[in-house]
């Protein structure tokens, strides 16, 4: 068990190092000098040289890399080229917004998908199970931004129940916050829930065919009892895998929904920084997303070990 844990930790750290190299390297191999790119073509050579010196861009690349990593580790990725605004606080602000959106959609998706998926599996031979299954198929095919646009046109434009977009801080205006959170969350959650429910359905169907479920019935457990006590934990492994993937997809996919609902999240910051050619900000945001995805994968790996004792011991 300890060995497995260490193994996963080594994998996590290695991937983080590799990811940081890739992100840093990728930004540097892009044609053009970052300082020149940031200042624009009309800037004087002197101004560019000054910026390069200020930001240490004239130092050897390995030194720059170590400096950058050091900044990340101390949670201080530096300041922007032009506005001179600190990057760290910007990311923290935007990350909060995105996290609200991602966590709320994931929780909502799970709350919808769990009962629906179970129902589809248990009733897969009955008309209601088949209808739900067909509906979830349709849900899988709908892109989140389309769901967002439809939701806006119905609930914001026609019914005027909620604003069509924007953002307020929850501490300032809790009701307004929830109103603005509702539609983007729903548009992300509905699609995710459809996908998740299908995975839950197939995982539970697999488990229902297992011999140990028949043993459980032979012990005197009623079908639903047997499924809950002996089936769900075994069905959880494939579902957790999908949950991890979905969380990562949400984090990155939120960019589109943030655009649709004019939400100042991490995705918007990324797009804005690209437009402003703020290389350091882009680098930092991308790195934050990469770290988040890697940590999610790490947690998923740990959950496997918690769920299935077979994965804890011995070689695969």
């Amino acid at each position: 068990m300890i060995l497995r844990l260490l193994q996963r930790l080594v994998v996590l750290v290695t991937s983080l190092v590799v990811a940081s190299l890739v992100v840093f390297g990728f930004m540097r191999v892009l044609p053009g000098d970052p300082a020149r790119v940031a200042l624009g073509v009309n800037a004087s050579d002197a101004a560019v040289a000054q910026l390069r010196e200020q930001f240490g861009l004239d130092r050897p690349v390995p030194v720059q890399y170590l400096d950058w990593v050091g900044g990340l580790l101390t949670l201080d990725p530096g300041i922007e080229f032009v506005s001179r605004a600190a990057i760290g606080p910007q990311i923290a602000d935007r990350l909060q917004v995105t996290l609200w959106l991602v966590v709320a959609s994931m929780v909502l998706a799970l709350v919808i998908a769990l009962p629906v998926g179970l129902w589809m599996a248990v009733r897969h031979r009955h008309w209601d199970g088949v209808v739900l299954s067909a509906l979830s198929q349709v849900g899988v095919a709908v892109p989140a931004f389309l769901a967002g646009i439809v939701l806006i046109s119905v609930f914001a434009v026609r019914l005027r129940w909620v604003p069509s977009g924007g953002w307020v801080v929850p501490a300032q205006d809790p009701v307004g916050f929830l109103q603005r959170l509702a539609l983007p969350t729903l548009s992300l959650a509905l699609v995710q829930a459809a996908v998740l429910a299908r995975y839950i359905r197939s995982a539970v169907l697999d488990v229902l065919r297992e011999d140990y479920l028949r043993t459980a019935r032979a012990k005197g457990l009623r079908p639903v009892q047997a499924l809950v006590r002996h089936g769900l934990r075994n069905a959880a492994v494939p579902v957790v895998t999908v949950l991890g993937l979905q969380l990562a997809t949400l984090l990155i996919g939120a960019v589109v929904i943030e655009r649709v609902f004019v939400i100042p999240g991490l995705g918007s910051l990324l797009l804005d920084s690209v437009a402003k050619r703020e290389l350091l900000t882009v680098q930092a945001v991308v790195m934050v997303l990469v770290v988040a995805v890697l940590v999610i994968n790490f947690v998923v790996d740990l959950l496997y070990l918690v769920i299935d004792p077979r994965l804890r011991t011995g070689a695969r």
Partner: peptide, 28 residues
């Protein structure tokens, strides 16, 4: 009914199945 039948299973009568490798819950 199923509820009453479940009360008999595992108590008044029980069963041993053919395949021991898959008859037990792997996570318990």
């Amino acid at each position: 009914g199923e509820r009453e039948m479940a009360r008999v299973r595992g108590d008044g009568m029980s069963m041993v199945f053919q395949e021991p490798m898959t008859a037990l819950n792997p996570t318990m």
